[in-house]
Design a protein around this nucleic acid. Sequence first.
DNA 1: TTTATATGTCATAAT
DNA 2: CTATTATGACATATA
Length: 660
Amino acid sequence: MKLLKPWWAGGGLLNLTLLLSLAGLRVDLDLCLPPPAAALCEELLPLYSTRPASASSSFSASGDWGRSPQQLAKGWLLHEVHALGVPFIPRTSVDAWLVHSVATGDADGAHGLLGTSSAVEDSDQAAPTGGGDPRETHNSPLATEEEKVAEPTAQVRDTDGRGSQENDILKEKSDGVDHSSQHEENEEGVSAHAKSLQPARKDENHVTGAPDWEAEHITESRNESHLHWSNTSFSLEDLYLFQLLSSQPEHSLEGIPLEDIPPFLSSVNESVNSSARNINWSHAISHDVNLHEAMLLCPNTFIKDPAPRTSQAQEPFLQLNSHTNSEQAVPEMSLSPVDNQMNITSQDLLYDLDSNIFDGINLMSLATNFSPLEVTQHIEDLDSDSGLSLNSSYDSTSITKSNSSHGIYDGAVGYSELQSLRYDLGAVGGCYPEPHKHCHMDYRTMSGFHQDLGCQQVFHDHTYHLQPGVPEPTSESFTWSRKSQKITGCLENPDRNLSRDEQRAKALHIPFTVDEIIQMPVDSFNSMLSRYYLTDLQVSLIRDIRRRGKNKVAAQNCRKRKLDIILNLEDDICNLQTKKEALKSEQAQYNKAINIMKQKLHDLYRNVFSMLRDDQGRPVNPNHYALQYSHDGSVLIVPKELVTSGHTNKCPKGKRERKN
DNA sequence: TTTATATGTCATAAT
DNA sequence: CTATTATGACATATA
């Protein structure tokens, strides 16, 4: 996205505000934008206003062009966040954000955030239909931890001690208590605002038609989290997006002339006003939804089951809330979510995450002085690392890329840019299979963000480039034809060193390394799948990666084992052959001995016959007679014909010789 | 280009 | 029943 201005560059407040309003979000006059969001909106609105149809091609894969203007704006905005490389949202991020919205905004504002569907408006209070699954937050064992997350923030805000009401709110949510009667208290305190939201949550259950939403499966919330363009209410990604976009509390919409509104928005405004879901623009920009505060209060809830916050993690936010100079607070505010998320991730997964990652991000969060040009360049570089095009020129390449990316993400949106950067650079990739290598990458990356801190040399590793010509996997089967792989090789793809699964994981922005996925214990693996906000496609890919990875190891072991068996058999053959030779030699020796014995016996025989004499004193011919031993030890001279016929006892000569 | 070998992957059975 | 392992068969990569 060429036009993306650097962080903290300011501007874009009006555009974002209008865009949010267009999307049905009511914006506080004090709403301020983080520079990326401002820049994003500055870019989005002109593009959207000038070429909604053509530009929409990049996210038209979702179909329905009969959507309302706010849907279009919302979809377009989210799409562009996609293009930024935001891979996914840990599931609790938006849930917790909702909690903070409850704590910070009034009911109307919260409703504006949660949804503007006519069906919802028909009900008592607005309720989100596609906004993820906030119910799970309060009906799972995780709910208590959500409360832990929300509690300190409420304490910060409500110095009069009413912050603890949030816990009550959360409990009442699950109880389905109707607080619509407390609308009058909205202006009195945060908690009252929050309570008035509860019917919306209650209605949501009716809208989704899930009476027993405790049994709601994770996959359902995943599906709900996807971008449903036909759905007028905001999804979790939407909410997260706005959370992402809101952190700079100093701009205001006051005094902005209507002429500044792009023509498209004006027309959209008309159409919106004429639609069933009217948006009162004056109302839209006057409600007290302070996204900045919401941002401040929920930055540590990027995952479904956040670990209890440490005092170390809370402290920055306490300080931030006390800041009067938002200029100084902005960097920390915007970056701290990443920081907290990282810490929580490490606590939750307990898996191969080096604290250096967090240190690097902490350093980055401390950086306050950025060179816009450098940062812009860095963002572009990082984006190029991620393989996603930030080019806003909408050439065919970028559109194609956006299309494919959008299709792949399948609704997985909402994540801090830094988070995506971290994962882009370190989470996936066989080139950096070891955690410390990931950290190394992060450090090098982060150094570009705060060169003032002494890291002058910026290294950019483009190992993770995806060649535009390489078709990205677009189906669950991830059929990788030989042809495409040859093309990949011919193009000298820097990702060539990556395994196919690593490339797939990178393409889908899987926030874990392949090694992690494969070697992770099954419990951690399952908890990871349920804790993180992953699309079905991502989950499927992760499971396939795990299966293939384990099978690969099994195949290697099997082959090794087979080879060992073969080698052992060869050794056995050799040993047997040696033994055979020895036996042959032994047999030869025995045969030789036998022959010697035979010869001796023959000689003895001849010798005996030479001493024999018949009755006439003539020598006995050994050719005609044989010696035969009788049972009593006597030796008889028997004619051979009798010996061969078996008549041993019949001695024609009747001659019995005594043994000499 | 062909061939041999190594490696990855899938299906299936076994654990 | 699920997850993992083992293994034959096939596909692909590489020397």
